[in-house]
């Protein structure tokens, strides 16, 4: 069986930052593997370790700078990786879920996976829609926000829990092939071992351009255009205690006693 797991390098913005045009000034940004994808990779690797003959292929959309991040997935146990990039993507505006799904669907058409695992959302733009859009493109079944996964390969069914709001989980059986969007907390993502990191360097990392996937620049044109980026006005009217930790703690203690706390 083959599992495709989508991974994304995401931007983490410092507490203090500056806006540069429609993005964040690069000086205030660090890049890392998307947290949700880390859980998706772990879920894929656990299935691989538990079963016979399971291949895990990580797929990403990103320029050469994202390779270090993608190698994290290889270091944690993915067998090989595919990176999609193209000058046309660098020039494109917003990579919305539809555009991303189109690109990954083209990779999936080559790979023919039985199961696709994605993160629920990415930490930076947080659309939370790429996985289900991808399922629709592939004609696969799907489940969004999965926080428990029990795969029955023989029956071709994934028994999943979907994490609904308010501490309720929905128990669902999903026919394969399927796309599952993986929620944080479903497992404990491993740290890459030194051996894993070494091995990752020699694992295959294929690069595909749009043309390699049979796509053209017209396929990545989105009707969505980002037009502004700004810091929201603070809505807060909090009374902020100033001074040393002792001083602020003392003021807070006074307030709490007034409210009857700790007495």
């Amino acid at each position: 069986m083959k599992i495709l797991v989508t991974v994304k390098e995401v931007a983490d913005v410092d507490d203090e930052f500056e806006i540069d045009g429609l993005g964040i000034d690069d000086r205030y940004v660090t890049y890392d593997l998307n947290e949700w994808d880390d859980y998706a990779v772990e879920a894929a690797v656990q299935i691989q370790e538990a079963g016979e003959d399971v291949e895990v292929v990580a797929v990403t959309i990103g320029d050469t700078d994202t390779e270090d991040t993608i190698r994290q997935a290889l270091a944690k146990g993915a067998d090989r990786a595919v990176r999609v990039w193209d000058d046309a993507l660098a020039a494109a505006g917003l990579l919305d879920p539809e555009t991303k799904a189109r690109l990954i669907a083209a990779v999936a058409a080559e790979e023919d996976p039985d199961l696709v695992l994605t993160g629920v959302q990415s930490a930076d733009d947080g659309f939370g829609a790429t996985g289900v859009t991808l399922a629709e493109h592939l004609g696969f079944e799907w489940a969004a926000v999965v926080n428990d996964l029990d795969l029955d390969r023989e029956a071709g069914v994934a028994h999943v829990h979907r994490e609904l709001e308010g501490g309720v989980e929905e128990l669902t059986d999903v026919e394969l092939p399927a796309v599952l969007t993986i929620q944080t907390g479903i497992n404990e993502p491993r740290y890459a071992s030194l051996r894993g990191i070494r091995q990752a360097q020699s694992k295959e990392l294929a690069e595909y351009t749009l043309a390699d996937l049979g796509l053209t620049a017209a396929d990545i044109e989105s009707p969505l255009e980002q037009t502004d980026l700004y810091e929201p006005e603070s809505e807060g009217d909090a009374t902020v205690f100033e001074g040393s930790a002792e001083e602020t703690a003392s003021e807070l203690a006074g307030l709490l006693r007034e409210k009857g706390v700790g007495s």
């Binding site: 919305d96 659309f127 829609a129 289900v132 969004a144 009707p223």
Partner: peptide, 23 residues
């Protein structure tokens, strides 16, 4: 923009070939 909303809205938008903006 709920767990269930995100479990079908992307599929409907894709089927209608309409752009989708979430959250």
């Amino acid at each position: 923009n709920s767990v269930n909303g995100l479990d079908y809205a992307p599929a409907v938008a894709s089927r209608l070939d309409w752009p989708l903006v979430t959250d």
